[in-house]
Design a protein around this nucleic acid. Structure first.
Lengths: 347, 347
DNA sequence: GTGAAAGCGCTAACAC
DNA sequence: GTGTTAGCGCTTTCAC
């Protein structure tokens, strides 16, 4: 732990150069010499300091990870996947979170590069318009985006537009015509936009009119009265909600329930993320699941491929399959035209 | 980004030593010189490489974080707290997870030390018996434990025994006499032990007989039949469950419900962790909450104090308050003796 | 097959 | 105030 390569050299009776070789290119060293040096290493409990290596300029075995937050299990799960592979391959991870803030994104990336990470795995607010990513490309810095759904850059994601489309279609197939999309407040991410597009397309294609997404602050303890009114009042109230993420869906579900609205009796709800916790709700939350762990792992493999120069120039962006998790929060709308169905709670 | 201190020195027309001083001790440098150097730094977009500094042996501004897993939001939240402060103070975080595996714990700590982190923040499986921690103490390596509830080492935690005691007492005050504790499978942690002690004490003190903790695999999709039987069959079945963590509580809740058991009608449930998601369940999960973010922040401050040598030798372990989150999963047992109440579902 | 020596980017004595 | 120099721990020519 505190011995240096010099100590080993002295102990074994060779030069530090030979010790270095014994470690990094054993086959270039005499068998006997090698044995002696290994013995010395063993005796001294020596382990080469990464710092010397790093400074020397070659491989740092460091990878930077930049995430919006860990409060959302989606990202924690991705990170878990990354960490697993990184540990197995002897890489060290440097982590920074950004809270979806562009300035912090920039700062994180610069800090990490200064530390000479070999590559970056990141989730940014908006990948397409991020000038910093262009700089990275230009400077030959290696990175892979995670969850950023763009074809312009190396990325691993699900097809957000398609996933939303599939989900909303399912709602429509259950007989819902007035489907509303709910989005979080800091929704101006590439993902949010694509999910809205998927929603709009599914609606249009079914001859229905997409409504603008309704913004909901899902950190608040209660649903805002205006929002609640929007959801529950009037004959034209929506019968199904497509929520841009599961946390939001859960909050809305609670809010509706407090307002004595039954889910799914009075309102069907579909989330996005497929948080495992959603399945523990009652009724279990229907959701569009993303394979987060796998996304993390795939991003890692992708980055390693780039680092090792083995990047099969294949399509830049890798799209992993999403899965429609059918939950009991979606009910079929009774065949009867329900235009008259007003907003009185059932159970 | 790619310029070195030499470039700055050349550009400004001074030696690298002066440039270094201009950066690290500006007041020791002539005003004019300083201005010129700053100009050069600006022009070259120079930012000193952490690696040189790190190797030189002084401050690395690196802190290592070792966590069991990120799949449990408890730890993700702690990490979030740490990251916040670290970022604000210009520290970089190096993260490794262990899956509660002692070998991985050791490996993580050694890897991090080799990287010359200034300190470590860790959650280990069992703090008391961990020889590695003794080594750290002995070698003067700075660390702070998080969530490890021990008085023998620097740590930030809640009083697990007391928290469990309070929770179980609440159950008893609601009239429950047959209270069973459920624990996860890899429960051999210091926390688990203390929670069991709290449970046992609350029971004994009320003249009740503590039962051995029942082990439940909460990664399985279904509750094991044997477990379910234990919970629901017989006249002596428990009327309340104290679960050693919220994830477990949620799984059990679902399992019971599938078996057409009503919560809290037929069974009261109390969790541990206070995951915010638990509040979104219906009924909202009663739980003993731990201030995870705060625990992370406190651990950070504590570590910084130690690093700066300002550790007010105060008591080693800092105990943060837990909070009893009353949820609707706990019902009062009707005054009547319920010995005869058998296992048929209510609503 | 092995050793001497240079140097990665920086800080800290020690001179001047 | 500023420059010179040594060296942190390592890898890597380049000789031998």
């Amino acid at each position: 732990m505190k011995h240096t390569i010099k100590d080993v050299a002295a102990y074994a009776g060779f030069s530090i150069a030979t010790v270095s070789r014994a470690i990094n290119a054993p086959h270039t060293v005499n068998r006997v010499t090698l044995a002696k040096i290994r013995e010395a290493i063993e005796a001294l409990q020596f382990s080469p300091s990464p710092l010397g290596r790093q400074l020397r300029g070659e491989r740092t075995r460091l990878v930077g990870v930049v995430l919006p937050t860990l409060a959302n299990p989606v990202f924690a799960e991705c990170l878990q996947g990354i960490d697993e592979l990184a540990a197995a391959q002897g890489y060290r991870l440097m982590l920074m979170t950004t809270q979806y803030d562009a300035a912090r994104e920039r700062h994180a990336i610069e800090t990490l590069l200064a530390q000479r990470v070999e590559g970056l795995i990141l989730t940014v607010a908006d990948a397409d318009t991020h000038p910093l990513l262009d700089e990275l490309d230009h400077d030959g810095k290696l990175y892979v985006l995670m969850h950023n759904d763009t074809v312009r850059r190396p990325s691993v994601s699900v097809d957000n537009r398609r996933a939303a489309y599939d989900g909303v279609r399912m709602l429509i197939e259950h007989g819902h015509e007035r489907v509303l999309m709910l989005a979080g407040t800091l929704a101006e991410s590439d993902r949010a936009r694509l999910r809205y597009r998927g929603y709009a397309e599914a609606m249009s294609q079914a001859g229905l009119t997409p409504a603008p997404a309704l913004e909901v602050d899902f950190n608040a303890d209660e649903l805002a009265p205006s929002v609640l009114a929007h959801l529950t009042a009037g004959a034209s109230r929506p019968t199904a909600l497509f929520c841009s993420n599961d946390l939001l869906a859960m909050v809305v579900m609670r809010g509706l329930r407090r307002a004595r609205f039954d889910v799914p009796g009075d309102m069907s709800i579909l989330g996005f993320d497929g948080l495992s916790m959603g399945e523990l709700l009652s009724p279990p939350l229907a959701s569009i699941g993303t394979p987060n762990r796998e996304i993390g792992c795939a991003a890692w493999r992708r980055l390693m491929a780039r680092i090792e120069g083995a990047d099969d120039g294949e399509s830049l962006s890798l799209t992993l399959p999403h899965m429609l998790r059918k939950g009991a929060t979606i009910a079929a709308l009774s065949g009867a035209s329900d235009a008259a169905k007003s907003a009185h709670p059932a159970a």
